[in-house]
C-alpha cells in the first residue's frame, strides 16, 4: 500500500498522496521497528526457538 501510494504521488503530484505517502511510510517504519524490538526482546529472554512454537 505504501509503494502504491508513492507511485500515485509520483504520477499525480497531488498533495493528498504526498501526505498519505509520508503517513504510510512513517507507519511502516514504526511497525517494522516495533517488531524488530519485540523480536530482539524475545531473543534476549530465550522465548524464541523453543519447543511447541
Amino acid at each position: 500500500m505504501t509503494v502504491a501510494t508513492l507511485v500515485m504521488h509520483d504520477l499525480t503530484q497531488l498533495p493528498a498522496y504526498t501526505f498519505l505517502a509520508w503517513l504510510f511510510l512513517g507507519l511502516l517504519c514504526a511497525i517494522v521497528l516495533y517488531l524488530i524490538i519485540r523480536t530482539l526482546y524475545a531473543v534476549s529472554r530465550h522465548q524464541i526457538c523453543v519447543a511447541g512454537h
Binding site: 508513492l6 505517502a21 511502516l28 517504519c29
Partner: peptide
C-alpha cells in the same frame, strides 16, 4: 519479508 518490504518502500521514496 518485512525488512525487504521496508527496503522497497524506502528505495522508492528515495527515488522520489
Amino acid at each position: 519479508m518485512g525488512l525487504s518490504g521496508l527496503a522497497i518502500a524506502l528505495q522508492r521514496a528515495d527515488e522520489l
